[in-house]
């Protein structure tokens, strides 16, 4: 349904995308996962024909973004990162305007608007002025706009950013429901979000695709190691011996502790060793002040993946 081929995009001297390629099948929900400034928005803006790439191309529903942008636009519903709303219009007026510029024939317009309002759960606020809506409803209004005319493809740029937890759950449920009927690309910088909503993930970092897999496989690859932070009181040799005895330790790094007579280590292991480590340390008579697992930040995961892919 969507073929992205070797997209490269520069902003002046700065390279935002480098040789990005991936495919999306019909009916698939693809997650575009990456930290801030990875190039997610740039990719989506190119696919929606908001801007052109410096080089490379993409085909959307069989139409090339360079040759037939109008055909591409006709088939995509797009929710930009900041919902593009006119705050002085009422929700209905706004959707009516978008429906009109969307080539939706007059006799289908009202049905299409009603359908979008229903799917996005905007029912109660349809006659409200957009400027008076809460962040959650503004996001829904943006989504309703993207759903007008039932486009084959939906492109959603960070649809859950800035929402409260309940709204996030609702929007994710909605996206899940929309998959199947629509081919969806959704961008996010939240790892669990793709696990919940996407069938496949493309990970992008610093403008390059670093991995492409199902969320399940990715999680397995990412949870290949655990990181534990431990702060103890006692001799350094004893502490290191205790750590080494708990299982397969990948690395031990000493860090500055909270006070001078404490020792602090960051340990990377294959499995969760907190239980064994606590037991061993206490048995050796050492004072245990802190012991906790620390999740990898998204940036570290990307670094990890990047180095891994290069090594492979």
């Amino acid at each position: 349904m969507i073929e992205v081929k070797n997209l490269t995009r520069y902003y002046g001297e700065k390279r935002a995308l480098h040789d990005v390629s991936f495919d999306v099948q019909k009916g698939e929900v693809l997650g575009l996962l990456g930290p801030n400034a990875a190039g997610k928005t740039t990719t989506m803006r190119i696919l929606t024909c908001f801007m052109t790439p410096t080089s490379g191309t993409a085909r959307v529903a069989g139409y090339d973004i360079w040759d037939q942008p109008m055909e591409v636009k006709n088939r995509i519903g797009y929710l930009p990162e900041n919902p593009p709303l006119y705050s002085d219009l009422r929700v209905m007026e706004y959707l009516d305007f978008v429906a009109k510029i969307n080539n939706i024939p007059k006799n289908k317009r009202q049905a299409s608007i009603d359908n979008a309002i229903e799917k996005s759960g905007l029912g109660d606020v349809r006659n409200q002025v957009i400027g008076s809506l809460s962040k959650g409803f503004r996001q829904r209004a943006g989504l309703a706009q993207a759903l007008l005319g039932d486009p084959e493809i939906l492109i959603l740029d960070e649809p859950t950013v800035g929402l409260d937890p309940r709204q996030i759950i609702e929007i994710r449920e909605l996206i899940k429901k929309l998959g199947g009927d629509h081919t969806i690309i959704l961008s996010t910088h939240i790892l669990p979000e793709v696990e919940m909503t996407c069938g496949r993930v493309v990970i992008i970092n610093e403008g390059e695709v670093v991995a492409e897999d199902t969320p399940g496989n990715l999680t397995k690859r990412l949870t290949g190691s655990e990181r534990t932070i431990v702060e103890v009181e006692g001799k350094e040799e004893d502490a290191r011996a205790a750590i080494q005895s708990v299982g397969e330790v990948l690395s031990v790094t000493k860090q500055k502790a909270s006070t001078d007579n404490h020792l602090k280590f960051v340990i990377e292991t294959q499995t969760d060793v907190r239980r064994d480590l606590a037991k061993t340390l206490v048995e050796k008579g050492m004072g245990l002040y802190e012991l906790r697992a620390e999740a990898y930040s998204l940036e570290e995961i990307f670094l990890h993946l990047t180095t891994k892919e290069e090594a492979a």
């Binding site: 636009k73 593009p84 510029i101 969307n102």
Partner: peptide, 17 residues
């Protein structure tokens, strides 16, 4: 300013319209 250009430019709408 409000980012609605992104709506106008990604709809099947020409700059003449």
């Amino acid at each position: 300013k409000s980012g609605t250009v992104e709506l106008l430019y990604t709809r099947p709408l020409s700059s003449v319209h």
